[in-house]
């Protein structure tokens, strides 16, 4: 077990390096010169070259990568081209908001998805199963930005119960755990939770229904286990796969919330990314993507470790 943990930890290093290389290169592959956006139209060639040197864009790519990476490891993600402010704190604040939204969506989506998926799998081919499966398909197929707008129309405009924009009175940086702020979380979190909930529901249903067909379930009944006892075994067998799906969906919640953050003006990383893309703000883009990607890598590591703790075949085999 310890050996597995260690090897899994070590294997993160090349992955993280690769990911950071891709983060770095992706934005360079994208067309467009970052400086064009900020240079005045009448700037001279010398001024442009000077600016280029300030941001280090005059050096060859590998050197740029080396400098960027060594700075990033020390926590310095450079300065935004658009605003001139350091990228680090801005990304931290935005990613924090995204994490908050993702966590809220997880708290809504995953338990419900697991519960109803489990129920549908256990009550397979009954009316309950059909209702649950149909709602899961509906949830997965609904474009969530559309759903977000519909929710805004219903709950913010027709019945002004909940705010439709922003993260609360204090702006993007001042989150407080009170109702004043939390009510801003309700609509975007629900909107964001719908797709992962549907996916988790369908996965759990398939897993449970599959496991219930296995011989060992009959053997469990044969040794006198009650329904609760059997379901505990089923849950433990379903957990590793369900966990990996949840891990992937968490990644989706972190990175895929751009549309939702835009619809609800949520000051998160998606919002930051979309602004950075429009402004061709390379350091901001690279920094945001890198931080999100590192979260994703860590998340996968945690899922792997949790899986190996549940299913002995993963670490020992």
């Amino acid at each position: 077990m310890l050996g597995y943990l260690f090897s899994r930890l070590v294997s993160v290093i090349p992955v993280a390096l690769g990911v950071s290389l891709i983060c770095f290169l992706l934005v360079h592959i994208a067309p467009g010169d970052p400086l064009v956006a900020i240079m005045p139209i009448d700037a001279t060639a010398e001024q442009e070259a000077e600016m280029r040197a300030v941001y280090g864009f005059d050096k060859p790519l590998p050197v740029q990568f080396g400098i960027w990476l060594s700075n990033a490891v020390q926590g310095d993600l450079g300065r935004s081209i658009a605003t001139g402010r350091p990228v680090g704190p801005e990304v931290t604040r935005a990613v924090g908001n995204t994490l908050l939204l993702a966590a809220a969506a997880s708290v809504i989506g995953f338990p419900l998805g697991i519960f109803f998926g489990f129920m549908a799998g256990y009550l397979r081919d009954t009316v309950w199963d059909r209702i649950i499966t149909a709602s899961a398909i509906a949830g997965v197929s609904t474009p969530n930005y559309w759903l977000g707008m519909v929710l805004v129309i219903i709950f913010s405009i027709t019945w002004p119960l909940l705010p439709s924009m922003g993260a609360g009175p204090g702006g993007s940086g001042a989150w407080v755990w009170d109702w004043q702020h939390m009510r801003h979380l309700v609509l975007p979190a629900i909107t964001l939770a719908v797709v992962p909930m549907g996916i988790v529901m369908r996965t759990t249903r398939a897993l449970v229904s599959d496991i219930l067909d296995q011989d060992f379930v009959q053997a469990l009944y044969a040794k006198g286990m009650t329904r609760t006892g059997v379901l505990r075994h089923v849950a433990r067998n379903a957990a590793p796969t369900a966990l990996s799906v949840i891990g992937l969906q968490l990644g989706y919640l972190l990175g895929g919330s751009i549309l939702i953050e835009t619809v609800f003006n949520w000051p998160g990383s998606g919002y930051l990314l979309s602004v950075a893309i429009l402004q061709r703000d390379l350091p901001m883009l690279q920094g945001t993507i890198l931080v999100l990607a590192m979260f994703f890598v860590t998340l996968n590591l945690l899922v792997d470790i949790a899986q190996s703790m549940i299913d002995p075949r993963i670490s020992r085999a």
């Binding site: 296995q214 011989d215 060992f216 009959q218 053997a219 469990l220 044969a222 040794k223 006198g224 286990m225 075994h233 433990r236 067998n237 549940i310 299913d311 002995p312 075949r313």
Partner: peptide, 18 residues
């Protein structure tokens, strides 16, 4: 399981793997 117990054809399928 108490009065009557059962053993199965394929023990690799009849035992819970986890």
């Amino acid at each position: 399981g108490r009065d009557v117990a059962m053993i199965f054809q394929d023990p690799s399928l009849a035992l819970d793997p986890v």
